[in-house]
Design a protein around this nucleic acid. Structure first.
Lengths: 258, 258
DNA sequence: GTGTTACTTGCACACTGTTACAGACGGACT
DNA sequence: AGTCCGTCTGTAACAGTGTGCAAGTAACAC
């Protein structure tokens, strides 16, 4: 928070000294400290000691705020070195980056997920993943399929992980359901017991992602190629409104591709 | 909708002829026809031509309503025959059941997902899956791991599928992001193009789930066995589980079977 | 001075889930 | 017959949510 000076006290004419970036940053802090559900316009405004209208003036709306917040966070998460020598190792390493950064930033991940911005949050890492697949010799439709398979696997485990911190009534949580299973069903007691225990998701991640990546890299490239004359969309008009042409000095360091 | 008779016209004393099941069923229809977000108490009340208070009286609250709705739907979805001869085929068949029933009932799946009731919705199929794994010789901790890996894979693909019908702003959708990718990044054009196209999720499902199941069934049972004396919980008192205990003054009729 | 731009506020609207309270109907009991 | 009570149903409200309109003032340009 910079906020040039606390300036005047109150009234419509006072200068709060707020910046668009200030609002986004405050929102980020708010989500990190109090969780995704705490990000309400009034809550954020109160934290900045202004009214909601001021927030709206600066960022334009909740959706825009979230988009910018996620985009900002996505650049932070991109800064992880890819480890490993073989293509398999490096691809798994990247998947692990997605996994770990999501787990380390549960609240923001949760926020992104609730608002359909997961792709946006993972975007830099997704780009790096495509690049790594390309280096491994996987391109075109096969690369798209591989990419999606990996993301689906990570994402699936992720929702299990996020469920744990979410405030879900006990009678809906998976472990509770298994602990309550009717013994008449003839299911193995040890299995039920294992299912009623909290899962070791990190181990599950390693095991599953390795299987999926191995499957992907082993698969020969599909021969049938859809002849499709490439993006006509990229030249289209830039959406509708964006008020402020997204300043930011982004310029990612592209540490993972070249 | 049975509603004994349209009965009296209006006023506090009129009989709307509503049943707890009627409300749940109406909610189900509402979700199916207008989507998960349309399930609001006022909306549902309006559809039944009563006020929200009546809904509350019958079902107790939104959470309870959803729980019952999901539980009802879960039993419908359970009615699918398992196909295949080999364990692999049968496990994949079950996973496909989860996948297909979720895709065929997007709105309810979406509702369950938003409210953390996914486990509840898939419960009968999950039980069948555990059973099938057991028949295949996978039990205990290995079964739990296998079970979770399969569910994560299906779930991950599912959120991709649900994203498509969700009303997500265009600039956050994955395909749009890829269509907008900076060509300077040095990524293969054919790959980007493939990623900008809508995915064939059914094919992706088949491919990925087969790999995961193959990996699971091939894995030898872990030798290192955590010395855990097994189910002490299975016999214990079933949590505190209130389910029906909470209600201020009036005691509801507990009409739902036993 | 006057005018314009950049912010900030107050207030309102339409929603959401939920509840306290008060009715009215129907049957049981006296 | 009168009374009581449990079973519904409605009215109105509360505290929240995102969002937009009109007005206000400070800072700056002239």
């Amino acid at each position: 928070m910079k906020r040039s000076q606390e300036a005047t006290v109150e009234g419509t004419g006072r200068r709060a000294g707020l910046d668009r970036a200030d609002v986004v940053l405050a929102a980020l802090r708010l989500v990190e400290t109090e969780g995704a559900d705490a990000l309400t316009m009034r809550n954020l405004a109160g934290r900045l000691e202004v009214t909601t209208t001021t927030i709206y003036w600066h960022v334009g709306g909740r959706d825009e705020l979230i988009t910018e917040l996620i985009r900002y966070q996505s650049e932070i998460q991109a800064a992880r070195p890819i480890e490993g020598e073989t293509p398999h190792e490096r691809v798994v390493s990247l998947a692990r980056h997605i996994w770990e950064s999501a787990r380390e930033n549960r609240a923001i991940t949760s926020l992104a997920h609730q608002n359909g911005a997961t792709s946006l949050l993972e975007r830099p890492l997704e780009i790096a993943l495509v690049h790594e697949l390309q280096v491994a010799g996987v391109t075109g439709a096969a690369a798209a399929e591989a990419h999606r398979a990996i993301l689906a696997t990570v994402g699936g485990l992720l929702i299990q992980a996020l469920r744990d911190e979410s405030i879900i009534p006990a009678n809906r949580r998976s472990e509770a359901l298994w602990a309550d299973t009717d013994p008449e069903l003839g299911l193995d007691a040890a299995t039920i017991d294992a299912l009623a225990q909290p899962a070791d998701l990190d181990a599950l991640f390693e095991s599953t992602i390795n299987a999926v990546v191995a499957h992907i890299l082993a698969k020969p490239e599909p021969v049938k190629r859809r002849s499709r004359p490439a993006a006509a969309k990229a030249a289209g008009p830039a959406k509708n409104k964006t008020k402020r042409a997204r300043k930011s000095t982004t310029k990612r360091t592209t540490k993972s591709n070249g």
